[in-house]
């Protein structure tokens, strides 16, 4: 059961990250492989604010803003210009990979390769249903629930969210209906970027210590969760994150935890082989 508890926390962090990741893919068709580097850069902004006497929860807002602004800039100044040239989608994937490497190792060049940690306390331990969770982990779970609830409200009940879904489903028809899709796309990158920044910070909180390359393999978990739920499907991303989070942590109880990304990759391969459009997706998604 303790593995289940760890799995829930991993799933919570992954869910925040995957929802942002899949929203970017849904609205702009960009598989942003630089997501992990934006996450860790955002975590470092939180860290520097935190070590300069800003409480972790206020510093987290700095990380969220960093994620939002960086993601918006990536779309505006890198991905959109490449997409406008009508290049093959794989070109943009390669560009994203390049941005990821520059973002990660550029950060490492600046901050060094030592591990750092936030000034935070894990809080009391709580025992229930065979699980042991500390205060920090409970806050991460609560944060995840609030964020996912807000995303659900945004997508389902607001004019902006419906326009985002319409733009994702059929951008030309959305424009013919009067939707300014460029504005919707920019807003989506801001919101998904904010999720990326938040995910980076809570990822770093959860791991306790981190360094510039800590999120490098995280893209495997993101891809597995996204493809499991269905590419471009925010609700699928939540479901995919839950399954990947639980399966990787529970498997870590039986195999070397260093190989838990392999479990995620196996799930991803299985999904691609048998249902490439994911559980919540449709064939048209791909």
């Amino acid at each position: 059961m303790s593995s289940f508890g760890f799995g829930l926390i991993t799933a919570a962090v992954l869910a925040i990250a995957t929802v942002g990741f899949t929203m970017q893919f849904a609205v702009t068709n960009v598989l942003n492989l630089a997501y992990g580097s934006v996450m860790i850069n955002s975590a470092y902004v939180t860290y520097y604010l935190n070590i300069h006497h800003v409480t972790i929860w206020l510093a987290l807002i700095g990380g969220v803003i960093t994620g939002a602004v960086t993601s918006w800039c990536l779309n505006r100044f890198i991905f959109t210009p490449f997409q406008r040239r009508n290049l093959a989608p794989i070109t943009v994937v390669i560009v994203a990979l390049g941005v990821d490497l520059i973002g990660t190792f550029g950060l490492q060049a600046v901050v060094g390769s030592s591990y750092v940690a936030f000034h935070q306390t894990a809080g009391h331990e709580y025992h229930f249903a065979g699980m042991i969770l500390n205060g920090l982990q409970l806050i991460i779970l609560g944060l995840c629930a609030v964020v996912l609830g807000l995303i659900h409200w945004l997508l389902k009940y607001t004019r902006l969210g419906k326009a985002m879904r319409a733009t994702s489903a059929n951008p030309n028809l959305a424009r013919n209906s009067g939707v300014k899709t460029q504005f919707i796309i920019s807003t989506t990158w801001l919101i998904s970027g904010a999720l990326c920044g938040l995910a980076g910070t809570v990822f770093a909180m959860n791991t306790g210590v981190f360094e510039a390359t800590s999120a490098q393999l995280y893209i495997v978990l993101l891809l597995a969760a996204m493809f499991l739920g269905g590419p471009g499907e925010p609700y699928g991303a939540m479901f995919g994150a839950l399954i990947i989070g639980l399966s990787t942590e529970i498997s870590a109880a039986y195999i070397n935890p260093q190989y838990k990304e392999v479990i995620a990759f196996l799930v991803l391969l299985g999904m691609l082989a048998f249902r490439p459009y994911g559980i919540f997706g449709s064939e048209k998604t791909l």
């Binding site: 004019r159 326009a163 879904r165 319409a166 994702s168 489903a169 059929n170 209906s177 939707v179 048209k284």
Partner: peptide, 14 residues
């Protein structure tokens, strides 16, 4: 000519 993942009402709202 429609937005398949959106409900009928949501299509009309768009």
């Amino acid at each position: 000519d429609v937005f398949p993942p959106l409900s009928v009402r949501e299509n009309l709202e768009i």
